[in-house]
Amino acid sequence: MIDWSGYLDLILQGALVTIKLTLMGSVLALIMAFLAGLGRLSRFFAVRALATIYIEFFRGTSIFVQLFWAYFVLPLLGFELTPLQAGVLALGLNVGAYAAEVVRGAVQSIGKEQYEACTALNLGRWQGMRHVILPQAFLTMLPTFGNNAIELLKATSVVSLISLADLTFQAQVVRAQTGNTLVPFATILVIYFALAMLISWGTRSLERRLSRGLDGVRV
């Protein structure tokens, strides 16, 4: 019989790395999404062009290749990154490109009358965006942001390729050491699923909280 307790420890350590990557990657993705998403709506051609290039490039190339660039090629150009930094960078930039389109779409879905109210109240472009448009658009973005975060969680497994000891990496270690395939892979399957459910639940409850009062129901 194999004593699984030590191996469970390994897997849990891997889970921590995966969670850390997901959280940090999501923060970067969120920042990139708003920068590029609003950039696509800019009055200035150069800003629009830059945002479009970023989005198309990171959606159009493989996340594996992006990760390899971050970890193996950037050092050749003088940027030395730890595996964790490279992982966060690649994941955040990649998912941020998808989420940028979500930001753009949500902002554009807000009716013209809201923009006109901003003008009539003499709010500046950014004031209107910050206080009127984005708070409403954010509610539209949330469900898709949840999807993006789950995508990001699942994509974290690619970092095992640059020897970062995440969930998938540790499962392979356990498999190599015990010779058992089913138990480690079944375990991480359940853990990935549980984490994804956690993200779904989190975005849903945030959505409920933010939409309170908007539908005319007295609270």
């Binding site: 109210a117 009539a120 409403q136 908007l214």
Partner: peptide, 11 residues
């Protein structure tokens, strides 16, 4: 200005 459809901020 006051608009036909009020244009209040719903949030």
């Amino acid at each position: 200005m006051v608009f036909q459809l009020f244009n209040l901020f719903p949030h």
